[in-house]
Amino acid sequence: MLVVEKRRIHPNIKTILRSIVCLVREPENLDHIYDLEDGLRDTKASLLALEWLNTQPEVAQLIQERYIAPPPDIEALLQYPQDSLGYAYAVYIQKAGFDPSFYRTIQVEDNVSYFLLRVRQTHDIWHVVTGFKTDTNGEIGLKAFELAQTRRNLAVFLVGAAMLATLATSPQALPNLLKQIILGYQMGEKAKPLFAQKWEENWEKPLLQWRSELGIEVSL
């Protein structure tokens, strides 16, 4: 008698699927992204990504320490030297009209939740350091970079959703999107782990020095 093995469906599958559909329809709605990330939080892929991250000593140390920095003072950072990361970040935030604490907060209860909070906290710093813009191609290029650096499952979904949305609405733009994805992934593979960095303790360090030390070549 043939026995068919029943595969357990993840309890958050409805949330995940609904978030994906909403994200394809409204790719710039951050709530859909956070809903998707929250739905993916307790999946096996998240745990495997965390296991892989912990094989990197610098990253493992930060996760164990659960380092969290206070929200940056943009006005104070604007007083830093103009070649510094702090100044570049402050100008980036100011020009874009962003709130540096815009991200959805999450209670740190374990290593997975700490990882998610720290990634959200430093997202725009990664933009500045890697040089990826905040348009669709730039965001997805950065997600490809994150994928190479962290194996984060959200990055897989967002890259896939962007490709599907572009194919459906602007197929002529797909080649440029693919170039950004390839570029981002290759940059992420070559660079040292950005997640391990305590950026906020070294705002004064020149941006070019950060890029040199981390092995990031900006050619966007």
Rank of each mutant, 00 (worst) to 15 (best):
L2Q: 12
V3A: 11
I9W: 07
H10M: 10
N12Y: 00
I13S: 11
I16T: 09
S19L: 07
C22T: 06
R25E: 12
L30V: 10
L36E: 01
D38C: 09
K44H: 07
S46R: 10
W52T: 08
E58K: 02
Q64L: 02
I68Y: 05
P72D: 05
A76S: 13
Q79I: 00
D83A: 11
L85N: 06
A90L: 04
I93G: 00
G97Y: 02
D99S: 14
F102T: 04
Y103T: 04
R104Y: 12
T105D: 15
E109D: 12
V112D: 05
S113A: 05
R120Q: 06
T122G: 01
H123W: 13
D124L: 06
V129W: 08
G131F: 03
F132N: 01
K133M: 13
D135A: 09
T136G: 14
E139N: 12
E146F: 12
L147F: 13
Q149W: 10
Q149S: 15
Q149C: 11
R152I: 06
G160S: 10
A161M: 07
T169Y: 10
P171W: 01
N176Y: 01
I182M: 05
M187W: 05
P193G: 13
P193E: 13
L194I: 03
F195N: 08
A196N: 06
N202M: 10
W203P: 13
W203I: 12
P206L: 04
P206R: 00
L207D: 04
G215L: 09
G215M: 08
E217M: 05
S219R: 06
